[in-house]
Simulated scan of single mutants.
Amino acid sequence: MLGVTKAPISKLPLELDSDLGRVKSPVKKENSWIYENSFKTMTVRNIALTKPYFHNGAFNTLEEVLDFYNEGGGEGLGLKINNQTLPADKLNLTETEMKQIIAFLNALTDVSKR
């Protein structure tokens, strides 16, 4: 659980996405609070080709995704989250470090798909 917002963090106001995820899934009906706003984690293979990102498709670039993680997810942004599994601490990544992470993620794209 990350506390994904309705839009990238550059767009105000910041609001938590209202999709309840696994707790209301038609496939798995989990009635425990721990499953609220929980979603399946996808692979990062070919991530450069799979935008938009997150379950709600609100993030269009890997830079927006990294900004979100760099701030500590929804809780790090000051939103009330009951079960965020991502630490709310800011990562304090530099611009260079974020570019390096994105370059690594782009390297996970199949050569035939580029």
Rank of each mutant, 00 (worst) to 15 (best):
N31F: 10
L12T: 03
N37W: 03
A7C: 11
T41Q: 14
Q100H: 13
V111L: 04
M42D: 11
I81F: 11
F68G: 00
L93F: 11
L2R: 09
T94D: 14
L108G: 09
E63F: 02
P52Q: 02
S25R: 05
Y53I: 00
Y69L: 08
V111Q: 10
G76Y: 02
P52F: 01
K29T: 03
K113C: 05
H55I: 03
T61N: 03
S38H: 13
N46I: 00
L93T: 01
T61P: 02
T50A: 08
K90V: 02
R45H: 05
N46H: 03
K40N: 15
K51F: 07
Q84N: 07
D67I: 00
G21V: 07
K90M: 05
P52A: 03
V23K: 14
S25L: 01
F54K: 15
L12H: 06
Y53A: 01
I102K: 01
E63W: 04
T85P: 08
P26Y: 08
L91V: 02
P52T: 00
D19Q: 04
N92Q: 15
L49S: 15
Q84V: 02
N46C: 01
R114F: 14
E97H: 13
V44G: 07
S10M: 10
S38F: 08
I101R: 00
K29H: 14
M1G: 06
K51V: 02
L12D: 05
R114E: 15
L62F: 04
G76L: 00
P87N: 10
E75L: 03
H55F: 05
G21Q: 07
K113F: 10
V111G: 02
S32G: 12
A107D: 12
L14A: 07
K11G: 11
L86W: 14
K113G: 08
V23Q: 09
V111R: 06
S32N: 14
G72Q: 00
K51C: 06
E36V: 05
K11W: 11
L91N: 07
G72L: 00
N46G: 02
Q84E: 08
G73V: 01
M98V: 06
I81H: 13
K6P: 06
F54N: 14
K24Q: 04
T96M: 06
V27P: 06
E30Y: 13
L16V: 04
L16A: 08
K90D: 10
E30C: 13
L66G: 06
E36G: 09
T50F: 06
S38Y: 13
L12M: 08
L14T: 12
G72P: 04
A103F: 04
N56L: 07
E95S: 08
L16K: 15
K40T: 04
K113S: 09
D89Q: 09
E75W: 03
P26K: 03
I101E: 00
T41G: 13
T94K: 12
K11I: 10
D110T: 04
K6H: 11
S112M: 03
L12S: 04
E75K: 09
T41W: 09
L86G: 09
P8G: 14
K29M: 07
L79T: 06
G21K: 06
M1E: 06
Y53C: 02
I47S: 01
